[in-house]
Simulated scan of single mutants.
Amino acid sequence: MAAAYVVAGSVLLVVGAELIGRLELAGRAWPPLTDVVAYVATPAGGSLLWRNLLVTLESAAKGFLLGAAVALLGAALALVVPLLRPGLDRFSAILNAVPTIALAPLLITTVGREDTPAVIAALSVGFLMFVTMTSAFSNASEVYTDVFTVFGASRLTRLVRFDLPRSVPAFFDGLTLSAPAAVLGATIGEWFGAPAGLGLLLVSAMQNYQMALLWAAAISATLVSLAAYLLCTRLQRVVARRFA
Score class of each variant (00 low, 15 high):
Leu88His: 03
Leu88Asp: 01
Asp89Thr: 15
Asp89Gly: 06
Asp89His: 12
Arg90Pro: 00
Arg90Trp: 15
Arg90Lys: 14
Arg90His: 07
Arg90Met: 13
Arg90Asp: 13
Phe91Leu: 11
Phe91Cys: 04
Phe91Thr: 09
Phe91Lys: 00
Ser92Thr: 12
Ser92Met: 14
Ser92Leu: 13
Ser92Asn: 14
Ala93Thr: 10
Ala93Gly: 11
Ala93Lys: 03
Ile94Met: 07
Ile94Leu: 14
Ile94Phe: 15
Leu95Pro: 05
Leu95Asn: 13
Ala97Phe: 15
Val98Ala: 05
Val98Phe: 09
Pro99Asp: 04
Thr100Ala: 04
Thr100His: 02
Thr100Leu: 04
Ile101Gly: 03
Ile101Ser: 05
Ile101Arg: 04
Ala102Ser: 15
Ala102Arg: 01
Ala102Trp: 08
Ala102Thr: 06
Leu103Lys: 00
Leu103Val: 05
Leu103Asp: 00
Leu103Asn: 04
Ala104Thr: 05
Ala104Tyr: 01
Ala104Gln: 06
Ala104Ile: 07
Pro105Glu: 10
Leu106Glu: 00
Leu106Pro: 07
Leu106Ser: 02
Leu106Ile: 12
Leu106Tyr: 08
Leu106Asn: 02
Leu107Met: 14
Ile108Lys: 01
Ile108Leu: 13
Ile108Trp: 04
Thr109Trp: 06
Thr109Cys: 01
Thr109Gly: 09
Thr109Met: 06
Thr109Ile: 00
Thr110Tyr: 01
Thr110Val: 15
Thr110Asn: 08
Val111Trp: 10
Gly112Val: 05
Gly112Lys: 10
Gly112His: 06
Arg113Asn: 09
Arg113Ile: 14
Glu114Thr: 14
Glu114Ser: 14
Glu114Phe: 11
Asp115Gly: 12
Thr116Pro: 03
Thr116Gly: 02
Thr116Gln: 10
Thr116Arg: 08
Pro117Ser: 07
Pro117Asn: 11
Pro117His: 04
Pro117Tyr: 08
Ala118Arg: 00
Ala118Ile: 03
Ala118Gly: 02
Ala118Trp: 06
Ala118Val: 00
Ala118His: 01
Val119Leu: 13
Val119Gln: 03
Val119Pro: 03
Ile120Phe: 02
